[in-house]
Amino acid sequence: MSDVRAILDVKDVAKTYRTRRNGRWQVVHAVRGVSFRILPQHIVALVGESGSGKSTIAKLVTAVERPNQGQIVFDGRPIEEWRRHLRAYRRQVQMVFQDPYAALNPLNTVRYMIGRPLINYRHLGQDALSDEIRRILETVHLTPVDEFMEKLPFELSGGQLQRVVTARALASEPRLIVADEPVSMLDVSIRAEILRLLDELRRQQGVSLLYITHDLISARMLADEIVVLYRGTVVEEGAALSVAKNPRHPYTQLLLRSIPNPWAPPEETAIDLSRIDRTSDEGGCVFRARCPHVMDRCAQEVPPLRRVESQQVACWLYEASGVAVGRSDP
């Protein structure tokens, strides 16, 4: 492992929920033994579709939910310790939400919304407050600042609103920002500038970012590392470019194939239509019911993450070539 201490270390975390279905209580495994770490100033993308557990992980990392198993360590201290200093934790771990229209109070001005965390967390007085609000609005490129200070949310476009949400997250000077699908509600033409903004924040403000998305391409553009989730399990992880360009796990391969691609000949993007509605029973590989390469073994044992070239892949296909990756906890 690297000598640099991770800002966030998620260790073998699991979360289950109980739901009632047809009058019977059932256990839903939202997250099953997930581990990953984020180094300072790094961006890690959690990529998955609905039901992958990516938003549950956001709730666990932001201490909104407690895991049933495993541990989350932020800045060297377990999250359970941080719970006694929740205010300090919240100051350092902020969120950017998916829907900027819903994340901002429609009755508050931009000045008020950026000012609140400055007063609450940084205890700024009236004089310093205005200057700091201006500085933060400049950081997220809401300029000329005077034009935006007194605006209400309905007067701003989607992209501008998402900048306000980002500015609000930055105001408390966090060390980690959890961004849950921050661009998926925005028009494609303005997504790129929000992604560029997030990248800039990491470079210039030194924050780390957990970028949660369903979009492999944006993950590749923004993140240093990609962690691919399927039904609460990490199926593949590694350097962003290699995971997104040369995926090893059959699920990541399916994701890549599914991205609209008018440049590719149709046979290159064609997928097997017969398996899409299937879900795997408990035990074994979570993806086996939809996997085109399924083998007997996949139903019997859960594949561990193994190193396959530059990636780590949880798939029995790589048993011969891969080297099992054990997690060595200090």
Partner: peptide, 14 residues
């Protein structure tokens, strides 16, 4: 804004 996902280099300007 819709890059070829197989490309070696992807840059989206928006």
């Amino acid at each position: 804004c819709f890059p070829d996902p197989r490309a070696d280099h992807i840059e989206v300007m928006g």
